[in-house]
Design a protein around this nucleic acid. Sequence first.
DNA 1: GTGAAAGCGCTAACAA
DNA 2: TTGTTAGCGCTTTCAC
Lengths: 340, 340
Amino acid sequence: MSSSDAGTPALRVTISDVAAAAGVSRATATRALKGEGRFSPETQQRILEAAERLGYVRNTVAAELAAGRTGTVGLMLRDASNPAYGLLFSRLQDEAHRRGLDLVTVTIGADEQGAKQVNALHRLLGMRVAGLIVATGGISAAQLEPFADQVPIVRAGRVESVGRIHTAHYDDPTHGRLLASHVLSLGHRNVVVLAGGPEASYPEHLRAMAMRETLINAGASVTMISAGAAPEEGVDEALGSVRAGATAVMCASDYRQLAVMRAARAAGLTVPSDLSVTGCDGILPGADLLGLTTVRIPVEDVAAAAVETMQGLLTSGDTGETVRRSFSGVLVPGTTAAAV
Amino acid sequence: MSSSDAGTPALRVTISDVAAAAGVSRATATRALKGEGRFSPETQQRILEAAERLGYVRNTVAAELAAGRTGTVGLMLRDASNPAYGLLFSRLQDEAHRRGLDLVTVTIGADEQGAKQVNALHRLLGMRVAGLIVATGGISAAQLEPFADQVPIVRAGRVESVGRIHTAHYDDPTHGRLLASHVLSLGHRNVVVLAGGPEASYPEHLRAMAMRETLINAGASVTMISAGAAPEEGVDEALGSVRAGATAVMCASDYRQLAVMRAARAAGLTVPSDLSVTGCDGILPGADLLGLTTVRIPVEDVAAAAVETMQGLLTSGDTGETVRRSFSGVLVPGTTAAAV
DNA sequence: GTGAAAGCGCTAACAA
DNA sequence: TTGTTAGCGCTTTCAC
């Protein structure tokens, strides 16, 4: 089933060519090709044959421009080199496929501040996508808000409390509490919490705040270390605290957990006898073999909910209420955290 | 810097609105907005202000349709849940950003056979992308070929020997040889090679073939196990061979390596004293902590080369010769493989 | 059942 | 320097 038999330049074939070859008007060709409206079976047959013969490929973009609507949903994604985002991306795609939604993705480098993000946003909006799924923290509610009544916007992964932006997000505070409770139950009372600052990673920040609160409420002594986005940052400081008496380092992500383990090993410290370590995400393949103590975040649930919400918005229209769904993961006790 | 102050429906604002508001014609507005052609500074100023005030977002799709060309490069991607693809995706994006290329991505579920792939391809082509980067094995050369003279096509990651499809790919045979030589140097002479079959994963197949050849040439005895895509497949069989005398299991991917280690642990076998294990990829965060014996594939090089090739094709035009660049990674000796 | 005409939002000669 | 005129490829009333 070759799409172009002759040397016909496939992309150059327009519906006019097909119509001419079949001896009908463009209007008729349009109808017959999509099987909607009125036309005689014979005519359709002829048109279909002509299209096949010429290797006609419809220019979706022009079609959607003319029709004034799009079946495409835009996805703004954060750097997929982080497996947690990669998996989210993958699941969003699967779910969208399942539901017959077309997804077009643009990613934004983590480095760019604002400008590129907005650029990417405009690129998607410029395609006149039917909806927007935002899976990056790099873009603010304020930047999104102006478009929220043009097109439904669903934020995936991260919570959003402002305006008409819908969300399907992780319950990060709960994740933090789950881990903190676990560490407390192991008897730790002098704990380091290592996380990216709110501007580096808002989810990490939420987790860290919840850990802190839970630990303090239980009477534990807590050292907060706020780092940048790079996982190595703050690790030395954390190890310093351990030498000063802390028995556990709670990291806001598995990446940081790995960094701490790496540094501990280099420093001649043994996990978990010299210090307990925890993380968060649970996405890393091999996390089980490493015995990571973590929370497996519900990527699948968030992806499914995001797409489902979007589809609801697209079909039944925006009812005016903002949908906000939250999902929490489960604790995965590992061998990196042990009783004091 | 709000993009729409009033309640103006941002997306509804067309260039005609902007032109009217600024008291000029659409043509002038077009020129001033993109800063090309001739126009007076004052006029431009007025137009820019009007655009800002109204929250104008250019309809890129219409613009590109009218202009008949695009600055956008389309990227067809495979499931990003695999970190190796996620990283490739990420690096392709970075590289494209660096070179001022806009990337639009569509992914295709691994499950769909043909139809959806072609659909995604058409979607991209319908956007009149300037070029196409294909980072999935899911689409065949035959499906790509018809469009190769419409638009430059670069395949990233996987080798392609047919027609006018350019490539920037991994030198998988070399990867296989590197690993096999390492295993041989450790004294193993009875080895299992566990890989996905050619249809499950062509790169894995290439690695496995090279391993086999290298091992056999050195006089080792080799057991080939061809599995499906799932990493657990064939693991039991591999362990069976170990009980029957094999001392090493060479996996064609790190995923499989993890699966083997998991199964070995469950079966009470110790790595590397009871059996040596190797993989391939080296992408997994934490691979170092696990001590994986692997080859780190040159994702960055492949991404850079793919984008560079594309840009060359775009700017200096297609010279008629097909560009094929191959990159090999480096061996990462780990603690999962030891001397017999 | 089919075609003519208008137009989606924008750009690109060519005039003015 | 700016406006006019044609479209890009397709869809969609609305007559015929």
